[in-house]
Design a protein around this nucleic acid. Structure first.
Length: 850
RNA sequence: GCCGGCGUGGUGAAAUUGGUAGACACGUCAGACUCAAAAUCUGAUGGAUGAAUAAUCCGUAUCGGUUCGAUUCCGAUCGCCGGUACCA
């Protein structure tokens, strides 16, 4: 027999009325505004808490099973906190500007606003169907003018502070998206969104000076309770390196070349220099004899993509300029080359090359026959390979005998004293290319006036509304569709009232998400982006949960804007998100042939013995874990899960799968297990007689152990083990004939954050007239969580040979005596001499013999 | 290449100031209920040898080390995942 469609939906046979219950309680919460919060000043500071989910982009395909994972985690945590007396801010909204809606508009002519709002409605319905305790009165969507008015306002603050500038330098251009991209949006030379190879293109761009905040963005990472991996990624992205800036005179010219180096100690080994093909001095340094070759090279480089310049260019290329520089430490004349392994965007776009001690320079020197001079004692000849380790300096004048670190210090001091160089710091982080040549985004609120220059739109005129256009098609020439609307472009200068033109670029999708967590605090404020009273009441965000894909992009940009707002005195904290958790991805099973190709799930049969075969060929397949994808037909739709098993099962299963932070494969069979657990609870409360007598000591102990475990694990977000403990408790309760009221009521409260609908229903059926969302969280009695007896193990040479049930707190000597008296232990001690005896109280006795 | 993280039964996973490996759940097997099946309830279930609920051995990617004792600490190797890509 074969099962068609592996992991097919298994309709539950016994059916507790989840559908009815869930509808009923969702309607109740909505009607009674159960989760709306206010800034109640009587609640002490430490009882105010802000728990935030990364808001979704409302895509056309609806909610994915990955979304509810983080949302369920924060929901459980929030419900737990409310029952513990906290005033909890827990909002939700939509990151609703973005390319998919615009691309859809280009194909169909449907306005992005229409599709976006339709998608938002669907997302909201789906999110609500899971019974999350959001304060929906605070919902925001970034595409609404009442929201982007303030995004524009913040941009003007950045502009006024001198943090926004126009640039004409080459930028990353995606020809599919027809727009410029930030450096962070380029992954392996390709557009992060669509995978198209990025090309360099000169397009006028608005750029934000995030580099001005590089140091603070780096330093303040230390203060954050974030995953180390995310902090490290940001740290690497900022890429601070300390070194020196050194000036090289050019032989026969007034100009000099500035280079940045982290290895000032190797200056005596600098045998040539390299400047980037885009360096401003390229033309000046090229001599007549070399002009032909240089121009040919520049032309060749210009036609390479960024990927070819980096990844594929294993072989170094370059050309001699004809000019010579003077090495400031020894006065030697060294040639200046032009090569594309030097990037214009890092440092000064020029380097001193030390082939003996740098692998890239070594490779280049070998190819072009440039001299290689050893300046650190190397273990292998520097003619054979570059030596990049530490060592003792040689051939280096006053540095001879020093190690690397001391020599760097000595050299910088020497350069500084002669005015030839200075200590310097460089960053890998580059300024943020902020403009997009697209329609569906916030218009940048600037006006270009021929006499006043670029001036911001007056704040009183915000929002600067996104106009209607005939065509959403980007021009591809570097102008957005807005540029085609003359009536919109042509305006008057806010300063001199003369004719002027509007900026036609729009902001990137990141803009709206840079500050949404602030707008939730005061979403309907028409006079300020957020009132400072409300900001101080809630900020910073205590817990932020979302996907790891935002480790650099969103989180870095949001931190940057937040710091700017902090410097302007608009917010009270220097960091927005105190604690961050990345939920793991929910993956799915996929089936792999021997050649590693994947087979769509609906083409696979599972044999009775558990093996998997491809239906058509009969080929045996291996079950592997893969990302969910439409092509593999292994995407799970939350709507379908909720319809068949209910929201409570969906929520609890996603939490039971494993730790929040790790990625884990979806298994509908696993979901059924959780469903059965909830069904068992339902029958426990509805089919058994409820008795009011005093519970047994044993049951009371189980209960208190459960209260303790669930309390601690919920607080620390270890939901999977909290659920396991609740299952143990239910298994205990099933051994009884009837249900004890006291135990039953307490247990429902523990269950409530996890499966709120079922819990509310059972709570009501137990006779309560008030919802349990603000019922006090149960407390445990520590004395009832410890057992009177404990099993201790008897080991001989570290191997368990016997065990015994003993009273808690048994004295060491007694434990040892028991072990020695044990028959099985005695067998292993026979004929041996005892060398050592180890007793760990209430745990074990280990007798070491020889 | 470099930087992180991870590797535990047939499956998802528990357990780490070093102290009974595999809680809980899925699956499988057996029993109860039933005319029967499903559902439900109860029990068993890491592997090997074994009639065995006896006993012994093996077992937390691999190899080695520290220790009375290692899933946990250290070193090396392999594999998978994520980040990054000539950053001077």
């Amino acid at each position: 027999m074969t099962l068609s469609g592996v992991d097919a939906m298994i309709a539950p046979m016994s059916k507790y009325p989840f559908n009815e219950i869930e509808k009923k309680w969702q309607a109740y919460w909505e009607e009674s505004q159960s989760f709306a919060v206010t800034e109640d000043e009587s609640i002490p500071q430490e009882k105010r808490i802000y728990v935030l989910d990364m808001f979704p982009y409302p895509s056309g395909s609806g909610l994915h099973v990955g979304h509810p994972e983080g949302y369920t985690a924060t929901d459980i945590y929030c419900r737990y906190l409310r029952m513990n007396g906290y005033n909890v801010l827990h909002p939700m909204g939509f990151d609703s500007f973005g390319l998919p809606a615009e691309n859809y508009a280009i194909q169909t002519g449907t306005h992005p606003k229409i599709t976006t709002e339709r998608n938002i409605e669907n997302f909201r319905r789906q999110i609500k169907s899971l019974g999350f305790s959001y304060d929906w009165s605070r919902e925001v969507s970034t595409h609404e003018s009442s929201y982007y008015r303030w995004t524009q306002w913040i941009f003007i603050q950045l502009f006024n502070k001198g943090l926004a500038y126009e640039s004409n330098t080459p930028i990353n251009w995606c020809d599919t998206c027809k727009t410029g991209l930030a450096n962070e949006e380029v992954k392996e030379g390709r557009c992060e969104r669509c995978g198209t190879l990025v090309v360099r293109r000169n397009i006028r761009q608005w750029v934000l000076k995030i580099t001005e905040y590089a140091d603070r963005l780096l330093e303040d990472l230390d203060s954050l309770a974030w995953p180390e991996s995310v902090k490290l990624m940001q740290k690497n992205w900022i890429g601070r390196s300390e070194g020196a800036s050194v000036l090289f005179r050019i032989d026969g010219m007034e100009e000099s070349l500035e280079v940045f180096t982290t290895r000032a100690d190797t200056l005596f080994g600098a045998t040539y220099m390299v400047i980037s093909p885009e360096h401003p001095l390229v033309s000046a340094l090229t001599t007549a004899d070399n002009r032909g070759a240089v121009e040919a090279y520049l032309d060749e480089v210009a036609h390479k993509s960024d990927l070819e310049r980096t990844d594929l260019a294993k072989e170094k290329t370059g050309v001699f300029s004809g000019s010579w520089a003077i090495n400031p430490v020894n006065g030697e004349k060294i040639p200046i080359w032009i090569a594309d392994y030097v990037l214009i965007s890092y440092g000064s776009g020029a380097i001193m090359a030390v082939p003996a001690h740098d692998e890239r320079d070594w490779e280049f020197a070998k190819k072009f026959g440039l001299p290689i001079v050893e300046v650190l004692k190397s273990e292998v000849s520097v003619q054979e390979a570059a030596w990049v380790e530490d060592g003792v300096h040689v051939n280096s004048g006053f540095l001879d005998g020093l190690n690397k670190d001391d020599a760097i210090e000595a050299m910088i001091a020497w350069l500084e004293s002669r005015g030839l160089g200075r200590r310097a710091v460089n960053y890998k982080l580059r300024d943020w290319i902020f403009s997009r040549q697209r329609y569906w985004g916030e218009p940048i609120p600037l006006v270009h006036c021929p006499s006043c220059g670029t001036v911001p739109v007056p704040e009183s005129e915000l929002p600067l509304l996104l106009p209607e256009v005939q065509s959403y098609e980007p021009s591809g020439t570097g102008e957005s569709p807005l540029a085609t609307i003359d009536s919109w472009v042509n305006t008057t200068c806010p300063v001199c009232s003369g004719p002027a033109k509007r900026e036609t670029n729009t902001m990137p999708q990141w803009a709206g998400s840079c500050w949404y967590y602030l707008r939730y605090l005061d979403p309907h404020n028409n006079t300020e982006f957020v009132s400072s009273q409300k900001e101080r009441y809630w900020m910073p965000v205590d817990l932020y949960v979302g996907g790891a894909e935002h480790a650099v992009l969103h989180l870095l940009y949001a931190r940057f804007w937040h710091k700017v707002l902090y410097d302007l005195g608009k917010v009270s904290t220097s960091e927005p998100f105190t604690r961050l958790i990345n939920q793991g991805m929910i993956t799915s099973y996929a089936f792999q042939r021997k050649d590693k190709s994947l087979v769509p799930t609906d083409m696979v049969d599972e044999l009775e013995d558990g093996r998997f075969i491809e239906r058509q060929s009969g080929e045996a397949l291996e079950r592997v874990i893969a990302k969910m994808s439409k092509s593999l037909k292994n995407v799970i739709n939350p709507d379908q899960i909720i319809a068949e098993y209910g929201a409570d099962s969906m929520r609890m299963y996603e939490m039971f799968m494993g730790p929040l932070e790790v990625s884990k494969p979806w298994s509908t069979a696993g979901l059924v297990g959780v469903y059965r657990f909830l069904d068992r609870i339902w029958r426990l409360y509805t089919e058994r007689t409820i008795v009011d007598e005093e519970p047994s000591q044993a049951l009371l102990k189980s209960l208190h152990k459960t209260i303790k475990k669930v309390s601690e694990d919920t607080k620390s977000l270890n939901f999977n083990t909290a659920i396991a403990q609740m299952m143990i408790m239910v298994n205990e309760l099933y051994k009884e004939e009837s249900l004890n009221r006291r135990i039953g009521e307490t247990f429902i409260l523990l269950l409530a954050p996890y499966v709120p609908h079922l819990s509310e229903e059972l709570w009501q059926r137990l006779g309560h007239t008030k919802s349990l969302i603000n019922a006090p969280w149960p407390l445990w009695d520590e004395r009832l969580t410890v057992d009177n007896t404990v099993t201790i193990v008897f080991q001989v040479n570290g191997k368990v040979r016997s065990k015994a049930e003993v009273a808690m707190g048994l004295a060491d000597e007694q434990a040892l005596a028991m072990a020695k008296a044990d028959e099985k232990v005695a067998k292993w001690l026979e004929g041996k001499s005892v060398v050592r005896e180890i007793v760990v109280a209430d745990k074990l006795v280990n007798i070491v013999v020889r």
